[in-house]
Amino acid sequence: MTSKPTSVRSPHQSSWMKGLLIAVAAAYLFLILLLPAANVFVQAFIKGMEPFLSNFNDAAFIHAVLLTLFMAGISVPLNTVFGLCAAWVIARHQFRGRALLISILDIPFSVSPVVAGLMIMLLYGRQGWLGPLFAQWDIQIIFSPPSMILATAFVTMPFVAREVIPVLEEVGADQEEAARTLGANDWQVFWRVTLPSIRWGLLYGLILTNARAMGEFGAVSVVSGNIALKTQTLPLYVEDAYKQYNTEASYAAAVVLAALAVITLIAKEVLERKTEIKDVE
């Protein structure tokens, strides 16, 4: 984001007013955002490194970390393929219902994660449409990783498409058409022409997808059953430890997720400087 210098053009705005507004904004950001974030790190390390390091002797913690990585490892690629396809469909075509499709793509962001989890539960549960079918094949969906992947993929569905659509629209189809005229097939056009031109937008979408996938709590908590060493991801582990009054373990795990958030913000900032995208979730 670029900001123009302002001192020249605001002779009428008194400097105390400017100072006051900056102070109020900074105080609000400090109180609402920075203080709670700092608290995670302080509580995690207030007794030294001991509680944090003891995490790594905790089988439930290790399992939660691995499961969280696994969830993201499956749902991020799924949504990347879908996001690229949907973005191409929307950005490269004019058709009836295009605006509707864009709105439909936003549904996962406006629906409560709990409702998302509930829908998966009702569909794949014992009394759902598909539950008995999978039960016949001895595949358990609910209270096991498949439903958690579905839930995670649901809540992170729109990110890639939303970041890629504006980039695709801006780049235009000229180069793709030129490549096709010169005899490139669809696959070659995608890898050699389209992908290089949308790479930063795509990466931005991937970062957002990954952060949400690793941090998702509501939808996963409905469908997973939250069983330690089985279906407990790291965000669920944080809540579970807290509910069992094991605040120390809770913060020791929370700080890992907070570090992920910090890395995400830094990566976003770097990409924004590179490309000047800035988007609302």
Binding site: L29, L33, P36, Q43, G215, V238, E239, T264, L265
Partner: peptide, 19 residues
């Protein structure tokens, strides 16, 4: 401060609740 604005999008909600 501009980067910090996005913190609620990046911080998992259970961590936000805890802190």
């Amino acid at each position: 401060l501009d980067a910090v604005v996005d913190l609620p999008f990046a911080l998992p909600t259970s961590v936000a609740g805890l802190t």
